[in-house]
Nucleic acid binder design. Structure first.
Lengths: 202, 202
DNA sequence: TTGGAGAAGGACTCAAAGGTCCATTATTAT
DNA sequence: ATAATAATGGACCTTTGAGTCCTTCTCCAA
């Protein structure tokens, strides 16, 4: 594949990613993708066997975007304040759209989990990776003595992720980010419930 | 409309409701609905102007199912134990399908909120009603002295609903109900954080 | 018993979306 | 420079699903 071909392919994936985020997978036609990426139909099929193959690529691209950004933020979390900053960034980003579209990964999961088993597994793996980052961050707080050692890192991390996803969904339905903030506040309060005496001020 | 016509209409809505739950709205064709309800195409159009009208009816039917069931359970909640029973029923119901399909209302919201403003508003209103039930239950616990009066009922209720929705989504993606249980446990633990001394045993 | 209104059946049209094919143009390596 | 390979453009085919229309049937009231 030549550099030009690679650029075309990237344009197609980017356009599909964007459109499928705004309209959903089913509502995005290949003609839309073609138009948005300034390519022709045969080019799409040159690079992808069918729509499912394109969707698969979109999943990977999007997951990488989300996880890269999350990794950058979560890696730096060393205190409860760090989780608050993590929360603020997510809420503020979502506020820009008034909650529309929801979580790039969550919305996708919801749409295709039940009728594309391969895609479902791929997304589940990405959620797992996300969960591991959260577990790592919680563990870090335990190591640093911010949280008590008897805290169940996996349960807390899973709770954070669920709160985030549920918050995204309610914000999407109501076009109001309040539920998202409330959900994340609740999850962080639950972290705080495991704070040590010395760590409760951080 | 004769009784027979009403029965036909109900059959159509029921079939559409079921199919759209299992496959999603976009993936459900009117031919599918026709076959599943043992009706003919003209009957569908006799009762519904177009697919959107049918979807609207499905939203109402489904919301009524969910909210009726929730009302029955939440009305009886008088203690933290009551919320645990509420959680157990939801988790166990979802376990029957290994998490597939997710929340009847949440999945629907996710699929159509961004491209059917009327439907989005309708679903948002139903979520609000659900939220009010949860607020009422939390308030009841405050009145009974189980929870402290400084607890923010709306924030806690919103957190419960987000946790539930996020749990549904992660369970759907992973085909594992663990995240759902963890999320609801976390939300209930947060209720418990506001328990009074006397109420902490109930 | 019969006439009429509403219910039911199913053939048909139309548009859109996915997918194929081939001729033409650009790129790259020798 | 040129042959080989890859990229591009766009016409074309096929399927499917939404929506229309007309005929037949059924049920109830006069």
């Amino acid at each position: 594949m030549t550099p030009k071909g690679a650029a075309t392919r990237a344009r197609i994936v980017d356009a599909a990613n964007q459109l499928m985020y705004e309209r959903g997978v089913a509502a995005t036609t290949l003609a839309d993708v073609r138009a948005a990426s300034a390519t022709s139909k045969s080019q799409v099929y040159q690079h992808f066997a069918d729509k499912d193959a394109l969707v698969k690529e979109v999943i990977e691209t999007r997951a990488e975007d989300v996880l890269t950004q999350q990794r950058r933020r979560l890696r730096r979390v060393e205190s409860l304040r760090g989780f608050e900053l993590w929360r603020d960034e997510l809420v503020e980003r979502n506020a820009l759209r008034n909650g529309a579209y929801g979580c790039p990964l969550g919305s996708l999961a919801n749409e295709i989990a039940d009728h594309n088993e391969d895609a479902r597994r791929a997304i589940a793996a990405h959620f797992d990776e996300w969960l591991e980052m959260l577990i790592d961050a919680v563990e870090r707080l335990k190591t640093r003595g911010v949280l008590r050692s008897d805290a169940d890192s996996r349960a807390l991390a899973s709770g954070l992720l669920s709160a985030l996803q549920g918050g995204y969904l309610l914000a999407k339905a109501s076009r109001d980010i309040y539920p998202m903030r409330a959900a994340l506040d609740m999850a962080i309060a639950q972290l705080r419930a495991y704070a040590t005496e010395t760590g409760s001020s951080t």
